[in-house]
């Protein structure tokens, strides 16, 4: 099982456009990815779930995935979260 713990860089957190980009990347990876913030964990392919976590700039979140290529997929997803998509 691969995991990454990263800090959100987008100025407005993980909503709107950054959330769309993130969910799109999860969906196209074909893996089941989980996103956790605090004690809440959910399916990272769910845009409504991601938005409803209310993830703000500077929050720490954890990504978890299993399967072939999980390390590479999480690297790519971590990159999206740690890039300021609102810049």
């Amino acid at each position: 099982m691969a995991t990454r713990t990263v800090t959100v860089a987008s100025a407005h957190g993980l909503h709107a456009r950054p959330a769309s980009l993130f969910v799109q990347a999860v969906a196209s990876s074909g893996l089941a990815v989980e996103l956790s913030k605090g004690d809440k964990t959910l399916n990272a392919a769910s845009i409504l779930g991601v938005i409803s976590l209310g993830i703000e700039h500077g929050d720490t979140v954890t990504l978890t995935a299993e399967g072939d290529n999980a390390e590479a997929v999480l690297d790519q997803l971590a990159e999206i979260i740690t890039t300021d998509q609102d810049a």
């Binding site: 392919a45 845009i47 779930g49």
Partner: peptide, 16 residues
């Protein structure tokens, strides 16, 4: 386009 792309993901949302 960005707004509508997000809406499309809402319709495809696995949790929903």
């Amino acid at each position: 386009k960005d707004v509508l792309e997000a809406q499309a993901f809402m319709a495809e949302d696995p949790t929903l």
